[in-house]
Amino acid sequence: MTLFTRLFAAAFLTVFAAVSASAEADTVSDICSEAEARYVELMGHPSAEAAGVTVVTMYKYNFCPARITVPVGTTVRWVNVDKRTSHSVLVKNSGEPESDRVFAGENIEFTFMLPGPQDYLCGPHWEVQNMIGRVTVVP
């Protein structure tokens, strides 16, 4: 393989990776917009207006948003807005068991009392669908 061919291949792969990452971000953004619309349909108000909690929706094998930052003592409410899929939440290293599965319109809550990053996942969908999120808790 000539130097030109190697350089061309490297440049192509770099551009392809950037385009793929951008398309994936657009797809997740679209999914999260759909999730918010479903939330409003089910709950009658935007997720930002949920009293006393921070809402994360579960939709099409995604947490929306997948990464949040909250102060210590915040309760996160995960709401399943999928029509036909159940989800669960397991906050890793919390000492708490995985939640029961919830269906459309149902929710799971967890109050974060320790500062630092805390990863969570959907028990049935983290491995195959990469349904993983993170809550960063600040003092």
Rank of each mutant, 00 (worst) to 15 (best):
R6P: 03
R77V: 06
G105K: 03
A35G: 12
V55Y: 05
S99T: 09
W78A: 08
E98I: 13
H45V: 03
T74L: 02
E49P: 00
L90T: 13
L90F: 13
F8W: 05
S29N: 13
S88C: 11
T74V: 03
E96G: 10
V102H: 07
V91P: 05
G133D: 09
E106L: 06
V137D: 00
Q118N: 02
N107T: 10
T54M: 00
F112V: 06
K83Q: 13
M43N: 13
Y120A: 00
C122N: 08
W126R: 13
A11N: 10
G52Q: 06
M113F: 04
G95P: 09
V55W: 07
H45I: 06
F103H: 15
S47N: 01
P97G: 00
P46K: 10
T74F: 01
E109D: 15
A37F: 05
D30P: 02
C64A: 06
D119L: 09
Y39N: 06
I108N: 03
P124K: 11
H87V: 01
I68Y: 04
R6E: 15
A10Q: 12
T27L: 13
E49A: 14
I132C: 03
L90P: 02
R6D: 13
D119F: 09
D30T: 14
P46R: 10
T136P: 07
W126Q: 12
G105M: 09
T69I: 02
A23V: 15
F12W: 04
N80F: 08
S22Y: 12
E34S: 11
H45L: 11
R134L: 06
T136R: 08
V76I: 15
S47F: 01
A17E: 10
L42P: 01
D100W: 11
E98D: 14
E96S: 11
Y39T: 09
S88E: 14
V89G: 02
N130K: 15
V89R: 07
G52A: 10
G116R: 07
T14M: 12
D26C: 04
L3F: 09
